[in-house]
């Protein structure tokens, strides 16, 4: 279940931040002490927040991006 959500998140990140967005995601999952396979659903929101901060350089975009990714990924 979380695997699919992460895949969706990766696709969204690539679409918005370009092809290197997926590495930021992978790195953040690793930093949080998980692998994509065992990533808990409860940690999705912190993951999205951190990934957005590291993948987008315009701080003004962060709230918009977080809410958009939340809407598309968590509340799918």
């Amino acid at each position: 279940m979380t695997g699919n959500v992460l895949l969706l998140l990766e696709e969204e990140l690539i679409d918005k931040a370009g092809p290197l967005g997926k590495f930021v995601l992978q790195k953040q999952i690793k930093n949080m002490g998980y692998t994509p396979q065992d990533f808990p659903e409860s940690k999705l929101l912190p993951l999205i927040t951190e990934v957005v901060k590291k993948a987008f350089f315009n701080q003004e975009l962060w709230p918009q991006m977080v809410s958009e990714l939340k809407r598309k990924v968590i509340h799918q």
Binding site: D15, A17, G18, L20, G21, F23, K54, F56
Partner: peptide
């Protein structure tokens, strides 16, 4: 272009 630019910024940071 915007996506590639953003990714280059990520690469630049890393």
């Amino acid at each position: 272009t915007d996506r590639l630019r953003n990714s280059l910024m990520i690469a630049k940071e890393y």
